[in-house]
């Protein structure tokens, strides 16, 4: 499980997002790739594209949007997605210095 890190879009507007209903399209200028992201992933991008947020805040937001109790499985899925998006250069994970 990830620590309570800060999740954000990479600096320099390298990543662009568009949102429609519960789906989004995310473009990475560095790789030139365009990704279709839906469901939980779309919510992550919708939230962090407005402002960087800690994992805890992202988790709370996901809970609010999907109206479900977050158990360890859901948290695990969120972490897997965040790490996958980081690998694709779509998200940045930094240490939470205010923690």
């Amino acid at each position: 499980m990830l620590d309570d890190c800060v999740i954000s879009l990479p600096t320099g507007s390298v990543v662009c997002c568009r949102f429609w209903e519960d789906e989004s399209v995310v473009y990475n200028q560095v790789s030139g790739e365009t990704h279709l992201v839906d469901g939980l992933g779309a919510q992550i991008f919708k939230f962090v594209s407005e402002q960087a947020a800690t994992r805890t805040v992202v988790l709370q937001n996901v809970k609010r949007v999907f109206e479900f109790e977050i158990d360890s499985d859901a948290e695990g899925l969120l972490d897997i997605l965040i790490l996958e998006y980081q690998k694709l250069g779509l998200l940045t994970i930094t240490e939470n210095n205010s923690a």
């Binding site: 209903e21 989004s24 200028q29 030139g32 365009t34 279709l36 839906d38």
Partner: peptide, 22 residues
Amino acid sequence: LSKSRAFLKLAENCFNYNILGV
């Protein structure tokens, strides 16, 4: 067709989507 899926289908049919970048 959902707009996100239409986006990807449209991008695949563009001659210069990659050239134009952002």
